[in-house]
Simulated scan of single mutants.
Amino acid sequence: MSRDDVAPPAPESGDAFGALLLRCWRANGAPGSAAEIVEREDGFIGWSDPSRYFAPYADWDLPERLLADWSRGRVLDIGCGAGRHLLELARRGLETTGIDASATVTGIARARGANVECADVFDFVNGAGAGTFDTFLLGGGNLGILGSRERGRSLLRDLRRISRPGARLLGVTSDPLATTNPVHLDYARLNVASGRMAGQDRIRVRYHKMASPWFDYLSLAPAELEEFTAGTGWKLSRVDEGDGGYAAELTLA
């Protein structure tokens, strides 16, 4: 089968992440082939190289490697991106399924050999036929998709429906106040003053002239994450810090 035979679909309007990931995939994941631009509502602009989404396990930050090492049984990778975790875990003999809301992104992961579905996480969890899982994976900083207290706690409660006994949820995030940058600290203070969580960033992804819709992306200190899980049926059971934030394990209470 040729590369053209498995080409992912073109990104839909607003799928800036899918567009930049497609550009990087076409360049075989080469560093510098695309840039992931993140715009925050206060005007702050950050960028990163999406080649990390295609990097092998040996090149991952420590928290990302820990997620792979802690995974067990049947795994659901939520927001799977280009499928780096799925491919590594499948190589280790685990049964894996990935989901992502972008058809372009899931097309890339599928072209790389990952087992994926294009689905919103809430639709997937509440739909028929999802099955049950031992491990839920939120790699690449994707504990951020918890978004807010309301959305995040709702998702954690919903995941219990498709959890096997002893299930765990693994993710990477970072303490939003673990910085000396006054721009980030001022934004965190404004968030708290407006009734939001300190690390509840309102952001969108940009690529060339494309921009995603605005969405909330949540960073949490370990103590905040422990408090966040109250009443959801999950509890924080393990934290391991390293470059790129910290890896967290939640287990069913």
Score class of each variant (00 low, 15 high):
58 A>F: 01
85 H>L: 02
162 I>L: 10
246 Y>E: 05
175 D>R: 12
85 H>F: 05
123 D>A: 13
186 D>H: 08
74 R>C: 07
13 S>M: 00
201 D>W: 12
157 R>N: 05
19 A>C: 02
208 H>T: 10
216 D>G: 04
22 L>V: 02
128 A>S: 06
101 A>I: 13
230 A>W: 14
162 I>A: 03
191 N>M: 09
43 G>F: 02
174 S>H: 07
151 R>K: 08
109 A>I: 12
84 R>L: 04
100 D>N: 12
237 S>P: 00
148 S>T: 11
166 G>S: 05
202 R>M: 13
221 A>D: 10
117 E>P: 04
125 V>F: 06
158 D>W: 02
64 E>Y: 06
126 N>D: 15
99 I>T: 05
3 R>T: 03
68 A>I: 07
45 I>R: 09
77 D>A: 09
221 A>Y: 01
181 N>M: 08
49 D>N: 08
2 S>V: 02
86 L>P: 07
110 R>S: 11
242 G>R: 08
8 P>G: 06
158 D>M: 14
158 D>C: 08
79 G>E: 12
163 S>E: 10
244 G>M: 04
59 D>W: 06
204 R>L: 12
78 I>V: 12
60 W>R: 11
19 A>D: 02
220 L>E: 01
42 D>R: 13
225 L>G: 00
179 T>W: 09
114 A>F: 11
176 P>K: 06
64 E>N: 14
56 P>H: 10
88 E>C: 14
226 E>A: 15
91 R>W: 11
28 N>H: 14
42 D>S: 14
201 D>Q: 13
115 N>T: 15
174 S>M: 11
202 R>D: 13
177 L>S: 02
44 F>T: 14
146 L>F: 14
87 L>V: 09
223 A>G: 03
79 G>V: 03
59 D>V: 00
203 I>V: 15
169 L>C: 12
39 E>N: 01
62 L>H: 14
231 G>Q: 00
248 A>H: 06
245 G>E: 07
21 L>Y: 01
109 A>F: 03
221 A>Q: 08
233 G>K: 06
57 Y>D: 12
167 A>Y: 05
95 E>N: 06
83 G>I: 07
226 E>R: 15
68 A>F: 04
60 W>C: 03
251 T>N: 00
246 Y>L: 04
153 R>F: 07
25 W>E: 04
112 R>S: 00
62 L>C: 01
27 A>R: 09
235 K>M: 14
43 G>S: 11
90 A>R: 15
91 R>V: 10
143 L>C: 09
132 T>N: 10
11 P>R: 10
33 S>K: 03
127 G>P: 08
48 S>K: 14
173 T>K: 08
194 S>I: 04
50 P>C: 01
217 Y>E: 09
213 P>G: 15
182 P>E: 03
95 E>H: 10
172 V>W: 09
168 R>W: 01
105 V>H: 09
84 R>G: 05
136 F>V: 02
7 A>E: 10
61 D>M: 06
226 E>S: 14
213 P>I: 01
137 L>P: 10
145 I>M: 13
155 L>G: 01
211 A>R: 04
210 M>T: 02
26 R>A: 13
37 I>N: 00
